[in-house]
């Protein structure tokens, strides 16, 4: 009877253990989703601002992210300091963004979106090839910064890397900072005014051209810093910008073009759906389907997840979650 008693007892104990393991895994994946969301926010924020205010669609925005990542990798490896690389990434992206605006984008404000798409597409080809010429085709791998390489237990029993946690916090701080800049400062006020009536702001004696270059560079910095954050987490390679750019498009469409708040909500939604889908959909389907089919369906469905969310939101609100009412 003793063995019978143990047999009765044992499953329930391991069941409880399994449940708590799943719970911890779940928390970890939620944090990973938040972290992807923060990346996406940093990239989308620039994209949505530049579109909302200047009316340009910039496919090469992902290239700024890539430039940030490459600069950070190179400088931090050469100097041994991640933070120096981080700083350099921001500077390089700002410089690249300002150059992009002055040389090309400025000519595109009055052109239709089709021209903007094609010109910035040509720009992507150029930047990708330039990066290949400088750094070659082999991906770069960066180490985590020394000071942030440990992990903390936010929930007892679930250690989480400090670096990833830092990225989440930094991204959220960026969101608050951006909100403050746009809605509380004088520059933000001018930018908002310029988006509604460019000529009027210009007539009031504001150098709107310089303001736009500045704004474009600011968007570029956000993308470049996102690239620097991503450096130690992904392999730094040509084409990394485009995959994040298309995700950023999904974010912007969900959030509403021009809305920074929408970009934040959309980014976190996309980050969570994508991460949780990849982590759990397969096991979830395994409850109903044979393993082989569950694996196949799970892979297909989890890669479709964010697009399905986008489609659903589009059906309910074609202008996104936070539509911006503006002059255009």
């Amino acid at each position: 009877m003793l063995t019978g008693g143990m047999a009765l007892h044992k499953p329930s104990r391991s069941q409880a253990g399994k449940n708590s393991r799943i719970m911890l895994l779940f928390i970890e994946q939620i944090l990973n989703g938040l972290q992807l969301g923060v990346f996406l926010f940093l990239v989308s924020a620039g994209l949505t601002l530049i579109f909302g205010i200047m009316g340009v669609i910039n496919l090469a925005h992902g290239s700024l992210y890539m430039i940030g990542a490459y600069t950070c990798a190179t400088v931090s490896m050469a100097s041994g300091s991640y933070w120096l690389g981080f700083l350099a990434a921001g500077l390089a992206a700002a410089l690249a963004g300002a150059l992009m605006e002055v040389i090309l984008m400025r000519r595109l404000y009055r052109r239709d979106h089709l021209d903007q798409v094609l010109v910035t597409f040509g720009l992507i080809l150029f930047v990708n090839e330039a990066v290949t010429m400088i750094w070659g085709r082999t991906p770069l791998f960066m180490d985590l910064p020394q000071s942030l390489s440990g992990s903390v237990e936010i929930v007892p029993g679930a250690p989480y890397p400090v670096y990833r946690l830092g990225v989440i916090l930094a991204g959220l701080a960026g969101a608050v900072g951006l909100w403050f800049l746009i809605s509380k400062t004088r520059i933000g006020m001018l930018i908002r005014a310029g988006s509604t009536n460019r000529e009027m702001v210009s007539a009031l004696g504001v150098d709107i051209d310089r303001l736009y270059t500045l704004l474009f560079a600011a968007g570029a910095v956000l993308a470049g810093l996102a690239g620097a954050f991503a450096g130690p987490l992904v392999s730094v390679q040509v084409g990394m910008g485009e995959s994040i750019l298309i995700l950023a498009f999904v974010v912007v469409v969900i959030g509403g073009i021009g809305s920074v708040r929408g970009a934040l909500v959309g980014a976190i939604l996309v980050g969570l759906v994508d991460t949780l889908g990849r982590a759990f959909l397969r096991d979830f389907l395994g409850l109903f389907l044979p393993p082989a089919e569950a694996a196949g369906m799970g892979a297909a469905l989890s890669s479709m997840g964010i697009y399905i969310v986008m489609a659903l939101i589009l059906v309910i609100r074609p202008k996104g979650l936070f539509p911006v009412v503006a002059g255009r």
């Binding site: 073009i257 892979a299 297909a300 890669s303 202008k319």
Partner: peptide
Amino acid sequence: LCLRTSGIYFIMITLAFAQMMFFITVSL
């Protein structure tokens, strides 16, 4: 779905759905 939007949204969303089809073929 795409035609519920227009202009810039349409460009982004056609690109996004095409990327979805791309990932579907990758997962086959």
